[in-house]
Structure formats: C-alpha cells, structure tokens
Amino acid sequence: MPEPRARERILARLRAAPREIPPRPEAEARPPAAPGPETAAALEAALTAMRAEVHRLPGGRWAAELRERLAGRGLSELLYFPGSPWAVELEEAWTPAAQDSPRLVAWEGAVEDFRGRLFSAAAGITAAAAAAADPGVLLLRPGPEEPRLLSLVPPVHVVLVPAERIYPTFEDALADGSFAPPLAANLVLVSGPSKTADIELTLAFGVHGPRELLVFILA
C-alpha cells in the first residue's frame, strides 16, 4: 500500500522551498466581444481550413433543410439521442421516411446496452453548445441530453451550431454559460475531423474519431 503520508511529504517539500509569488499576469486589455454576424463567417473559414464541411441552415425549418442536404450523400443512417431538446423537430422532419435520406435511428438506453449498435453506426448527430471563430472550435457539452460517444464513434459527425453562440475568440467564449461552474463532466473543443500525421507527417483523417465533420450553422 502506498504511504498515506505521501501527500503531506510532497506538500511539505514544496512549502520548504524559497518562494516569491508574482502578481497574476495581466492579459492584454481587450473589451470582451460578443457573437455577431461576422463571427459565423470567420468560424466557417477556420473550420473549412481544418477540412470540416460547413453549411448554413435557415432558423425556421432547419430540420427539413438538413434532411435535404444529407440526402444523396450515401449515408445509410443517422444516429440521434431522443433526449436532446431538438429531437422532436428532427423526428418530425424525418416523417415519413424516404429512400434517399439517411434512416433516422434513436440511441436507446445507457451505453452498456447500446455499445454494439453504436460501434456499427454510420453517422451521428449532436449539437454544439457554443463555438469560437478564433481558433475555429466547436464546444461540445455532452451530458444527460447528449451522449459523449455520439460525436466520436460513428465515422461521420453531423453537428448543429446555433449562430448566436459563436464567439469571436476562445477567450470570449469562456464567458458562455457552458463554462460557468460547476463545469460539465466532459467538455470537448472540436476543430475538425479526427486526424493524425504520425507517419512521415502525412496528414490522414479519421484515424480514431470521425473521418468527416459536417457542420450546420443555424441562423
């Protein structure tokens, strides 16, 4: 069994060292910026540069439009979480089912019972809680309304981004409610599809996470 006093000994050694505590460094003085129309365009440019595919959807009938845009892409199915706040709109738009659009499949129960199905899913849809145009990231906030693996395991990740939650910078985004304490158990910043350059620095996509990231900005 490890020494129960390890903690005390480590802290005592640190406290014994000579220390002078400098003041907190001043960040560059800059007025906090709020989301605006130009931030969506900047986010689109940044994400596109990271090989994500970015679309805009009209606020009103976004779900029907989404279904049209996903049609004919060869996606066999789209996995969604019925507990998410926009699930009903999605279900309505997908009724009745049609040949050319992906089949809408609901996540069922806890992951322990759903793992096999999840690992064979073709695509998953989630929403971003917020985004930052610089450096071009979406903030995922999985929790009771969204499984974390839905945005990770299927090879295609479809993600909805509310335009009014796109902040100019990551620093600005920290003002978003998503970062108010206590923090969600899992927050993820995503800038594009999964990638690696571990072999001869050659970029390859989809090594573990999604190969494709389809971003839909909701006006």
Partner: peptide
C-alpha cells in the same frame, strides 16, 4: 488548435 481539447471535470 488541435482537433480535440478534452476538459474532464
């Protein structure tokens, strides 16, 4: 930025 930044709380 990297593809993913995980914040685990």
């Amino acid at each position: 930025v990297t593809t993913y930044v995980n914040l685990i709380s």
